[in-house]
Structures are given as structure tokens and as C-alpha cells.
Design a binder for these strands. Structure first.
Length: 557
DNA sequence: ATTAAAAGCCAC
DNA sequence: AAACGTGGCTTTTAAT
């Protein structure tokens, strides 16, 4: 049930006691029953090659990812000092997929630690935990996430380069020759110079030059931040803000981006599972997690296909309510029919605060540690209406201020503050400590408290999202039908079935044959309910989604 | 010439 | 209104 891939010195693998030449791995995997949990050092190292060979894996155990969680979890006690598993690098997907000869990467790496021993060690650590069930769920979800991330890279996000190019041309003007400024930016640069009475040599791309020119013109700006410029009353503000906005589009998602990251009608950015301390995913290359709304028009489904786009509404406050056991706040998120409604509207309906906007900034402030402005002002009212949730995040913040570890619902623990932090705290208790030493220590402590306050919520929301993803992935596969080509050949994974193509923290995009879109939408809904049950059992918290079916990502929002 | 930091904006 | 969490990425500018 749990075959382990053990790299051998001769470049082959040992699986279930049998020697398997690398080239035979796909057929060995394909021959096993679907319940097998494939256990390996690094999903990124083995799974891309399997997918390329047309073999999908249902379940996996990623030893590297599991190790990272267990090593620092406060819900487990790890028996050994640091070893090779603590510094095992993740295999970059680009290294595996770009080079067919490297389908599985090099295997004869003597430094690779023993996966069989590591699995036994991890099993023992989990079994010895008082929260073994939660940890098992977390490890399973993390590993399923690793499979999903590789599959999304394999499939890619459908991307029409000509639509992207049209967006750029409409906004910036036609693509200029190398080193030249697009027409629209050029006009704005001239308007900026005119408004400042600056010479033609003024380059708005140089913050130094620009700020100096603005000071000479008496604009009164101290920085070039957008929000600060918006406060000013000067003719340069409007063209400058426009320039900055277009410049951003050009440099971050312009023609160069298009050429670098879009190939064959697909955008591929590598997801880094667990790449954020809280357990959120990071991404590498192309900035998948910051795709600006302006270019999402280019995300267009294949002919005959469409997208199901879903995002979890107010995920973090719902997660907070559930982990804090706050029935009152959970009720505010269930709505009149009990199936889930706008949580901020529910908070208003409860009488705690007068407007939705205040409910929103107040809850965000509670989860981020905000103290100023309208957010700070409504906190006392929220604390009175929802004492359990507010006390929960406050306790996480206090633990952080004391330099302690906090832990998510399933058992991912925060790191400890570094040496500088401790030195600063110690500095406040020196005999010769001045007011500034004490203030700095307090500021550092508060800052770490904001981190731990947010960690428990963001981290548990990431766990919910992992379970959601895993459930969607499994349901889509079960829903799918194997498409056969006219000659009877079966299409490889994901070329004929609905599949995940995008994920950002609390939002997913499924690329699906149009005929299955409604069924996919229903499964995505079911998966959200399942994720809630997996994490919080019978606790009555709702996780409603907003779901849209549209052939373009931009139209789904 | 190369690297690192700083500033700023994008996403959630 | 502008301090209040997690990141990636690009450019300019300073440092080596």
C-alpha cells in the first residue's frame, strides 16, 4: 500500500524490494492499484516524469515536505538532531521538464538520505503525537498539494498571447523597438516634464531624479508612493500616477514577460508548496500569485472548454471562528438559510457594527494586528460581540510577544524569532537600558506578535485550502471520462478531463470540457464542505464559495 | 562587473 | 487613512 522509491547507486530504483530501471518506473506505477501511496523524497523529482509518460498518481507521501512540518511542529516531538533531510533542496520543475533526457533527474546521488528509514521515523513521530489524526491529515494534504502543484505546472494555464498583446497595445501603444518607450508612456513622460518645468533630460524612471525635480517644482512630495501622491494637489500628479501604472504593466507583465513565460498557449509558473512560513504556497517565475487583473483577459479556455472559477468567501474570518470555537461568529457567517452568506453582512446583522465596510476592516485589523484608524476603532465592539475569536488571536499575539511558538489547527508551527530579536529583548533589561532600548524591544515584540497573530489564521486557512484542493483534485478525476481519439488511443492525463490550472490562496480555476462545467461547479462546492468537515468536524461553520463558469478568467470575477 | 539593498506595486 | 499579515518581482542605486 505504501511503496517507497529508493534511489540506488547504479542509477536505478528499488521499489518494494525489486530493482526498477528508471525507464520502467511509469509502467510499474501504472500497474499498481490506485490506493497505493507513493512515497518519495521529493514529488517534484519524480512526478513530472510520470505525468510526461502519461501516468497519474492518486496518493503520495512527500518525505521532504512532511519532514519540514514534523521537525518543527509543537504537536510532535522529533527525536533527532538536524540531518540531511533538514536541508534537502526541492527539485526545480524547470530542471526536470525542459530536458527529456532528464525525465527523472540524476539518481546516483550518494548524498540522498534513506527514504525508508525516514518514513519509519516520520510514522513513529506521528504515532507518538497526541494529535496524530490532525498531523496525518496535514501531511496527506501537503503531499496531495505537491501532486496538484506538479499537475498544474504540467497542464499550464491557458493563455492567449495575442489577447495579451492586444491588452498591451491598447494600454501602452504598439510594441516599441528594444530600448524605446511605448508611445503612451512617452507622452506621459513629456506631460510630467511639462508639469514640473523640467528639461527633456528628466527620466521619470529614475526615482532620484524625479523626486529632486518634484522638490524643485515645489510639489511637496516626500516619497513617490501612490497613496502619498494621491494626497497632493499638483498638475504632475495625474500624469505621474498614470505613468507609474503603465510602467508597472510594461515591466511586470509586458511583452518581455509574455515571451519569457508563455509557451504553446500555456503560462507555466512553478508553485512552491509550503513556500511561505504559514504553509501558503509561494510561486517562482512569472509571478503567478500576482497576476494583475488587467491581463486576466488573456486567460482563455481552449475551444470546447471553459473555466470554473471559485473562491472562498471571507475564508480567514471563518477559519478563525472555527478554530476559536466561536459559535456566535460562525453563526454570523451562516446566514438566514444556514448554508453560508456574506460574513461581514452577517456581522452587521448581528448588531456588532453598523456597516459592512467597518465589519471588514475591523476583522482584517483583528487578524493582522491593526490598531489605527477605523479598524482600531471598531475592534472593541467586535471584541464584545465575538469574544472567543478576538481572544484567540490576541492570545496568539501575546505568545509571539513572549517569543513563543504558535501552531495552526492541524499542527504547523511558527518559527522562533531570531538572535537579533532575543538580543533586542535582552537589551531592554540591561541596567543601562535607555528609553529607546525599551521602546525598540517593545516594537520588536509587538511586530513578532502581529506575525504569530496572523500565522494561526493564515496558516489554518492554508490548511483548509489544501484540503479543498485535494478534494477537488480527487473529485475531478472521478468525474472525468477518458477521452479516446478516433483511433482508439486514450488521451494522457488532463488532456481530456477537467483539471486544476490555477490556485491563489483561496481561489481555484478548473479548465474543463464545457459539457462538464456544471458538474465541476457542483464538485467544487462539495469539496469546500468536505474541507470544512475534515478540519473542524461537526462545528457549524460554513465555507460558501462564489463560483462562476466562463471561458475567460477576466469574465469570471 | 557583480551583488545586495531599497523602493515600490501586484496578489491574497 | 496610510500602518497592519504573507509573499514575488522589477528597477534603480549603492556597495563590493
Amino acid at each position: 500500500m505504501q511503496p517507497v522509491l529508493v534511489p540506488q547507486p547504479d542509477g536505478s530504483l528499488r521499489v518494494d524490494g525489486r530493482r526498477v530501471p528508471l525507464g520502467e518506473l511509469p509502467s510499474v506505477v501504472a500497474a499498481r492499484d490506485a490506493a497505493a501511496r507513493w512515497t518519495w523524497d521529493d514529488t517534484n523529482r519524480w512526478y513530472p516524469g510520470l505525468l510526461s509518460a502519461g501516468v497519474r498518481v492518486e496518493r503520495a507521501h512527500d518525505l521532504r515536505l512532511a519532514h519540514r512540518i514534523l521537525r518543527s511542529s509543537a504537536l510532535a516531538s522529533w527525536p533527532d538532531p538536524d540531518d540531511a533531510w533538514d536541508s534537502l533542496p526541492v527539485t526545480p520543475l524547470t530542471a526536470v521538464a525542459d530536458e527529456p533526457a532528464m525525465l527523472f533527474g540524476p539518481v546516483d546521488d550518494a548524498a540522498r538520505p534513506d527514504p525508508v528509514a525516514e518514513l519509519a521515523r516520520q510514522d513513529a513521530v506521528v504515532a507518538g503525537s497526541a494529535a496524530a489524526g490532525r498531523l496525518r491529515l496535514l501531511l496527506a494534504a501537503e503531499s496531495a498539494g505537491a501532486l496538484t502543484a506538479v499537475e498544474m505546472y504540467h497542464a499550464g494555464l491557458p493563455w492567449l498571447a495575442d489577447v495579451h498583446d492586444a491588452v498591451l497595445t491598447e494600454t501602452l501603444g504598439p510594441r516599441p523597438r528594444l530600448g524605446e518607450r511605448p508611445a503612451r508612456l512617452d507622452e506621459l513622460a513629456q506631460r510630467i516634464r511639462d508639469a514640473l518645468g523640467a528639461p527633456a533630460t528628466l527620466n521619470p524612471d529614475s526615482p532620484q531624479d524625479l523626486l529632486r525635480a518634484m522638490q524643485r517644482a515645489g510639489v511637496g512630495a516626500r516619497t513617490l508612493r501612490k497613496w502619498e501622491l494621491e494626497q497632493l494637489d499638483h498638475p504632475v500628479v495625474e500624469p505621474l500616477l498614470e505613468y507609474k501604472s503603465l510602467y508597472r504593466l510594461l515591466t511586470a507583465n509586458g511583452w518581455a514577460w509574455l515571451e519569457a513565460w508563455v509557451r504553446g498557449g500555456r503560462f507555466r509558473s512553478e508553485y512552491v508548496v509550503g513556500g511561505v512560513v504559514t504553509g501558503r504556497w509561494a510561486s517562482s517565475g512569472g509571478g503567478a500569485l500576482q497576476l494583475p487583473k488587467s491581463v486576466r483577459r488573456a486567460v482563455v479556455a481552449d475551444p470546447g472548454w471553459t473555466f470554473v472559477v471559485a473562491d472562498a468567501a471571507q475564508l480567514e474570518p471563518r477559519v478563525l471562528a472555527a478554530m476559536a470555537g466561536d459559535e456566535v461568529m460562525a453563526a454570523a457567517g451562516r446566514g438566514p438559510d444556514g448554508r453560508g452568506a456574506d460574513m461581514y453582512a452577517g456581522i452587521v446583522a448581528s448588531g456588532a457594527v453598523p456597516t459592512r465596510e467597518l465589519a471588514k476592516v475591523g476583522m482584517l485589523g483583528a487578524m493582522y494586528g491593526g490598531t489605527t484608524g477605523s479598524s482600531g476603532q471598531v475592534l472593541p465592539r467586535l471584541a464584545k460581540a465575538f469574544p472567543r475569536s478576538l481572544a484567540f488571536v490576541d492570545e496568539a499575539a501575546r505568545a509571539g510577544e513572549r517569543g513563543e511558538v504558535v501552531t495552526t489547527h492541524l499542527g504547523r508551527s511558527s518559527p522562533l524569532p531570531g538572535a537579533t530579536w532575543h538580543e533586542t529583548q535582552a537589551g531592554a533589561y540591561q541596567d543601562d537600558a535607555g528609553d529607546d532600548d525599551v521602546a525598540r524591544a517593545r516594537s520588536y515584540a509587538r511586530s513578532w506578535g502581529r506575525f504569530t497573530r496572523n500565522f494561526v489564521v493564515q496558516g489554518t486557512a492554508a490548511e483548509w485550502a489544501l484540503c479543498w484542493l485535494a478534494s477537488i483534485r480527487r473529485r475531478l478525476w472521478a468525474l472525468g471520462v477518458d477521452s479516446a481519439l478516433p483511433d482508439g488511443a486514450v488521451l494522457p492525463p488532463f488532456t481530456g478531463r477537467p483539471h486544476l490550472v490555477f490556485f491563489v490562496h483561496d481561489e481555484i480555476v478548473v479548465h474543463t470540457p464545457s459539457s462538464l462545467a456544471e458538474a465541476v461547479a457542483a464538485e467544487v462546492q462539495e469539496a469546500a464542505a468536505e474541507a470544512g468537515r475534515l478540519l473542524f468536524g461537526d462545528f457549524p461553520v460554513a465555507f460558501p464559495l462564489s463560483v462562476a463558469i466562463a471561458p475567460s478568467y477576466a469574465d469570471a470575477k
